[in-house]
Amino acid sequence: MGRETRAMQDDDATNPAVLWLLDGEALWSRKAGEAAKACADCHGDARSSMKGAAARYPGFYSAKEKIINLDQRVNLCRIERQQAPAFAYESRELLALSAYIGRQSRGMPIDIKADETTKPFLDAGRAAFNRRQGQLNLACSQCHDDNWGKSLAGNPIPQAHPTGYPIYRLEWQGLGSLQRRLRNCFIGVRAEPYAYGAPEFVNLEFYLMWRARGMKLETPAVRP
């Protein structure tokens, strides 16, 4: 990320994702669903109740015995607690809520723990990261571990630490999730991306966040 992009990200007067944060804040206290409850009715002020939450996602969801990401965690509350229909992936609402929740952990270290229960999911994510795929037959690790810092078609290859999602990507002219970003890398090597929310995708996200553990969250980040 260049100097100008970082300056844009770190200043609330110029980071366009602030527009989504305002939507997220409004949604947080809007009653919805058959339960006619707002997120705030149960969770109170997000600035305290959600502090640190995003730094722990994706995480293990014991009722389903799988790893879920923050978007899925929000939708669980939509369905089970508010009794409202789930928000679609990449919808304005879901991105706004995840960005708003993520914002409450800005500056906090990513805190993903691997233990006996989560190890199989982490291993699956790591295997996907190291597996060659697509018509170009390239693994994520060949770019992001072996060649980071070099450039690809004029773009510097980053280390693929997902510290700022959802991000405002200048290329998208809007906010998008980590899965949307990853789809671009899949398509880049001409591989078929997983469907949004697919367990393989979430395991890969889980591995990437574990790999970035200790780094500070910068949600909502700005990226070229």
């Binding site: 609330d12 007067a13 602030v18 527009l19 305002l22 939507d23 409004a26 304005r92």
Partner: peptide
Amino acid sequence: GRKARVVVH
């Protein structure tokens, strides 16, 4: 239905 959002500093 979507509120026009503006931010001024």
